[in-house]
């Protein structure tokens, strides 16, 4: 588990690769750490993690009630649109901010134990997936009111979730070291995510043309939401959105690998 002697003094790429291999081999460590994070958050509450599902359901319910009045779409279509969109958004947005804090959150562990750093990155990713799985339950219940008939095309949402998983890993590898080095980035990212919420089609439908449609088209978040929302709501495979998501993932993996490998020797000094 500790960094093996061979790792020390090796090239940054092979050392980084060794780190990831070692971390992936101990899933029960990062699973238990992620579980402990969730327990910390809901310790001494009666409802515990059920709060995640409850608060999400209430949030969506109120949003549908208020913003549904302003939407041209049918209430059922808008309700599902908001539920899936907001569910996916809340995962992405909390993943982004947790990715920023992945190392900072584990500061005491980084200075106290020689655990390969990917453990902390996977811990942050898994913690968000644990939360997201409860949100997915609410989304599944909401889909009982799906306005369109069920077709096998809905299964295209599964590779969409897989793309989310890949994103959650490289996002941590990229943002965690940068936020340790540049603390301003943490606040910059959090602020911009708050703004992104409004320019992403979550509470509004983009339509076919006009400023909103253009705004949605150039926003990669739109495409991230579409690869899960479109198959479930409209039974269709959004090819353009998939191209954007794959491209972003590809770039993200490369940047994440560079960020991880070039900072791994310095994190303990910076943090």
């Amino acid at each position: 588990m500790h960094q093996s002697p061979a790792v020390r003094g090796a090239s940054p790429w092979s050392a980084a690769w060794q780190d990831w291999r070692q971390a992936v081999r101990v899933p029960s460590l990062w699973m238990n750490l992620a579980l402990e994070d969730l327990r910390d958050r809901y310790r001494r509450t009666v409802l515990g993690v059920a709060w995640i599902a409850i608060s999400f359901a209430l949030f969506v319910g109120v949003k549908v009630l208020v913003f549904g009045q302003m939407s041209a779409a049918s209430t059922r279509e808008f309700a599902i649109f908001v539920t899936i969109g907001f569910g996916a958004w809340s995962f992405i947005s909390s993943m982004v901010s947790d990715a920023c804090g992945a190392y900072l959150h584990s500061r005491a562990w980084i200075l106290g134990t020689a655990v390969p750093y990917p453990v902390y990155l996977l811990q942050a990713a898994l913690r968000n997936w644990m939360v997201f799985s409860l949100v997915l339950l609410v989304m599944a219940v909401a889909l009982l009111w799906k306005p369109t008939p069920w077709t096998p095309a809905a299964l295209f949402a599964i590779p969409g979730l897989l793309a989310y998983f890949v994103t959650s890993v490289w996002l941590s590898a990229l943002l965690a070291p940068l936020c340790v080095r540049y603390h301003d980035l943490l606040h910059a990212v959090q602020t911009s995510m708050r703004l992104m919420f409004f320019v992403t089609p979550i509470l509004w439908m983009p339509g076919q043309n006009g400023v909103l449609a253009e705004l949605a088209r150039i926003n990669p978040m739109t495409h991230y939401l579409a690869i899960v929302r479109d198959p479930l709501l409209y039974n269709h495979w959004p090819a353009t959105s998939w191209r954007v998501v794959l491209l972003v993932n590809l770039a993200g993996i490369v940047l994440g690998a560079i960020a991880y490998a070039s900072t791994r020797r310095k994190i303990a000094f910076w943090i």
Binding site: M1, W109, G112, T113
Partner: peptide
């Protein structure tokens, strides 16, 4: 292996375990 050398090297043929301060590497909650 928590701090990486700026120069020179550390070598061993086994894992090195450490205890530092009790607030590091424990979950107080």
């Amino acid at each position: 292996g928590i701090y990486h050398p700026s120069r020179g090297s550390v070598r061993s043929d086994h894992d090195v375990s450490g205890i530092f301060n009790i607030h590091l590497g424990f979950r107080p909650e």
